[in-house]
C-alpha cells in the first residue's frame, strides 16, 4: 500500500526512483563486466591449453 506523500509526492518518488535506478545500473554493470572478463579469461586459458 502506497503511503500518502502529500504535496511532496513528486520529490520523494523522484529520489527513490533515481537512487534505486542508479544502484540497479551499477549492480548490472559490475555483474556484466565480471561475466565478460571471466569468459574472456576462460576462453583464453582453454585455447592456450588446447595449443599446449
Amino acid at each position: 500500500m502506497m503511503p500518502d506523500l502529500g504535496r511532496y509526492a513528486m520529490e520523494v518518488s523522484l529520489a527513490y526512483v533515481a537512487s534505486l535506478g542508479l544502484l540497479a545500473v551499477l549492480v548490472l554493470w559490475v555483474w556484466l563486466r565480471g561475466r565478460a572478463v571471466r569468459r574472456a579469461l576462460d576462453e583464453f586459458e582453454k585455447d592456450r591449453r588446447g595449443h599446449g
Binding site: L26, V27, G34, R38, R48
Partner: peptide, 27 residues
C-alpha cells in the same frame, strides 16, 4: 553491505583482468 559486495565482485573482476593482461604480455 552493498558497497562490500560490489567491491568484492569488482576486485575479482580486476584480478582476472590483470591475469589476462599478464598472460597476453607473456605470450
Amino acid at each position: 553491505l552493498i558497497f562490500v559486495a560490489l567491491v568484492l565482485a569488482g576486485t575479482r573482476t580486476e584480478i582476472r583482468a590483470r591475469r589476462m593482461k599478464a598472460l597476453v604480455a607473456r605470450e
